[in-house]
Design a protein around this nucleic acid. Structure first.
Lengths: 122, 122
DNA sequence: TCTATATTTCGCCAATCATCGAAATATGAA
DNA sequence: TTCATATTTCGATGATTGGCGAAATATAGA
């Protein structure tokens, strides 16, 4: 039962749900998820670690970036699929959808660099 | 999304999962759930409150006892149904199954009274 | 090599949570 | 009414959680 509870705990935070739901369309690098969630990089990293240790997502390193995607064979994948159907009907996910379009439209490199701008620089 | 997260949070505790899973076979009074979970009455009561405010269970008062059952039209009922399929395969739920048989075999009244025995009495 | 960038790890803090025991509430039975 | 019983509420406590910033790590490019 431990692994089931780990999955449910991983799913029971709104920001983790947002990240997971965003990944259903394809992989995203951490910077893009930071831009989506508008949280500190360390916070996003922690959320991703929790999702990954529940085996809901996987990561892939490519150059400077780490791309996350939904696990191919994730535990309780049917549960997650039904959960996505529920999330689809929320205003929060509709808002994220729009924000995601913006994120997709920008080159990853420029989006990432913008995140690290100190005031007065860049 | 708030209500979805409330449901997921309610589901992400092992003792609440045990209670919910036990109720799939029919209603149980609080005493029986206390006997099943082996937690303090106040703790069980709080768990039931959490499950009820997520609308996963309902209660019904009958005399001295309060009976809990799964909500007829619970939110995310398909998710819960799939979750039950997962739980069915765990050793924890198999153990609870046996314990439940014991609980069913005993008259509610004697089972409840036994819970309040102070050492030296009864 | 050195530097900028991308991500994670660490340490901290405030908020929430699971648990308990004690007290309060409600109900049936004597 | 009084007493025993069934359940909830309250208050306290230790553990976990979500958040941040700073420091550490890793990598690409100059």
């Amino acid at each position: 039962m431990n692994s089931i509870v780990a999955v449910l705990k991983a799913l029971s935070d709104p920001n983790r749900l947002r990240a997971l739901y965003a990944l259903r369309l394809g992989e995203l690098c951490v910077c893009q998820l930071i831009a989506l969630l508008e949280l500190a990089p360390s916070t996003v990293s922690k959320h991703l670690t929790i999702l990954r240790s529940a085996r809901l997502i996987e990561s892939r390193k490519e150059g400077r970036w780490i791309h996350y995607r939904l696990s191919k064979a994730s535990p309780m994948s049917k549960v997650v699929a039904l959960l996505f159907d529920e999330l689809e009907q929320t205003t929060e996910m509709a808002d994220d959808e729009k924000r995601l379009q913006q994120i997709y439209s920008e080159k990853v490199e420029t989006l990432c660099r913008r995140l690290f701008c100190k005031p007065g620089r860049c």
